[in-house]
């Protein structure tokens, strides 16, 4: 005799795919959230610039809109482009 699987309720866990552990702006872990947020995950998403640097979206938005940042990536000083 044989058995066969009819239904499978599987469990998967997602996280951000980044090389660094922490955000270069707020220094908090990418697995966590930025200092303004309470919850990680989709609530506090990450974004990658064309320079391949990655930040909390909330952090880089604040950064590029600050007067002294000149729209530059804080890591490589290239122009920040999503």
């Amino acid at each position: 005799m044989k058995v066969r699987v009819k239904n499978w309720s599987a469990v998967a866990v997602w996280r951000w795919k980044v090389d660094d552990d922490t955000c270069g702006i707020c220094r908090m872990a990418f697995d966590g959230c930025c200092t303004d947020c309470r919850l990680p995950g989709d609530e506090c998403p990450l974004v990658w610039g064309q320079c391949k640097h990655c930040f909390h979206m909330h952090c880089i938005l604040k950064w590029v809109h600050s007067p002294n940042a000149n729209q530059l990536c804080p890591m490589c000083r290239q122009e920040w482009k999503f």
């Binding site: 044989k2 058995v3 009819k6 998967a12 866990v13 998403p45 990658w48």
Partner: peptide, 29 residues
């Protein structure tokens, strides 16, 4: 499934927590 998921959600990675999974198995006794 993973292919499907990552296609839709860029920037994410997926790992499986198999010990938490359940199955309904048909057994032809």
């Amino acid at each position: 499934f993973q292919k499907f998921y990552l296609q839709k959600h860029t920037g994410k990675q997926l790992s499986w927590d198999n010990p938490r999974g359940d199955c309904l198995v048909r057994a032809a006794f």
